[in-house]
Design a protein around this nucleic acid. Structure first.
Lengths: 130, 130, 130, 130
DNA sequence: GTGGTCTAGACCACA
DNA sequence: GTGGTCTAGACCACC
């Protein structure tokens, strides 16, 4: 057992941008802020931003146009696929956690349904780290 | 946007122990390893372990017997409540994430069901940090 | 029979602060002295103060604002509940003590009433430890 | 503000014996255990026990008969007075505490009555040190 | 041996 | 400057 496995910042930046893209804060075809601007906004090193972007360019979520900037892809299938991937990642994770707690598949679905149903009264649910 | 929100080690220890208790690795009434032993096993300081235990003792998940050791509570209601809390915490988190991605309540349930159905073929789902 | 059950300092600090809050020496929303200042004032270690505060923060009597300070909650319900808890704690204790002396419920109330009535003339009552 | 004012052990012994006498564990006229035996039972020094007894003898709660032992007084008035003193000490203390919390005389009596009435369901009242 | 408490000193994040 | 966390080492009470 080892603790403190901090998530790399460049990875956190990727996730951050994924959400911006998928929630529409950055629309398809939109120009991203300049790398140096992003670095300032996020108070991280330029290289760290660049590393995140490089990976997103490689997977074609972002299109780099030399001398003009970086742009969100307009490929709707690509975006749909990305969203699917994010969603499945989240689900896989929660599924594993609940499975560890010996919940059956149907119990997992039922408990999610139950959570949603009773969500009206927040009841001060405290986040417990993984 | 801020990064690097490191989860305190004592908190990670709590979660670690919660899972040990709820998955039956530590059965009700079982004696926990000595504080100093836990510190060695987890390669953290004794006080860090103690802090985690102190909180779990305060909430009565663990019963401390001075000079003898720490023991998992035998109160089944307490344990059931703890499990419920952990499950709800996980669900609340994933729900929020998927909600951010503009999935409706029913879509969230449906996608979970879909994930479970197609789980047979793993398809290399990569974990994406929150 | 065992003696010397020393009350932990961090616990005494909590009680001390509870009274400050409930008697209005520290008003709702007021900023507490800095942790390091409190440590000096009370001539204890910073960590001991911090431990007391951590517990009070966990129970939401105190609101911690990173980098700014610790503040008394402005939640009147919370404060009323805290006061109720303190009062009941005191009453439970005295009730148990008098019960041990074979006073009936009504005798206990009557003796309190009697104490209050004759309180005008102090008569040199000496405190006897519990 | 100073913490950690530990109560002298000899004083705790006095209180301990007071309760034994007043609850009937030590009846009027009964012989107390030998000083050396008491010291063993309470795991304290003989001199500490002696100091407690000396004070109780001086106030005539205990009668010392040279060579025979120490005996609880048979003076009923004395015992009644002692009990009254203990009760009043407790009441004075709790009264002061609640007064500090700005409860009026009548509120103090009322809250005690309330405590007794609802005492059926214990509700896990936590002792808060003075 | 066990757990519980306290101190001293350090480092980090936030402002 | 602030609070939050972690480490190292010590002492005590209980068994």
């Amino acid at each position: 057992m080892k603790f403190d496995d901090k998530v790399p910042i460049y990875y956190q930046i990727k996730t951050y941008l994924y959400y911006d893209v998928l929630t529409g804060k950055l629309k398809p075809g939109a120009k991203l802020p300049a790398v140096r601007q992003l670095a300032v906004d996020l108070t991280v090193n330029v290289n760290t931003v660049q590393r995140a972007l490089t990976e997103m360019i490689a997977e074609k979520t972002i299109i780099s146009q030399r001398g003009k900037g970086n742009f969100v892809t307009e490929d709707q299938d690509k975006l749909a696929q990305l969203k699917e991937q994010l969603v499945m990642s989240q689900l896989a994770h929660v599924y594993d956690q609940l499975h560890r707690l010996n919940l059956s598949d149907s119990e997992i679905v039922a408990s999610l349904q139950r959570y949603i149903d009773q969500k009206g009264a927040p009841q001060d649910v405290e986040r417990i780290s993984d």
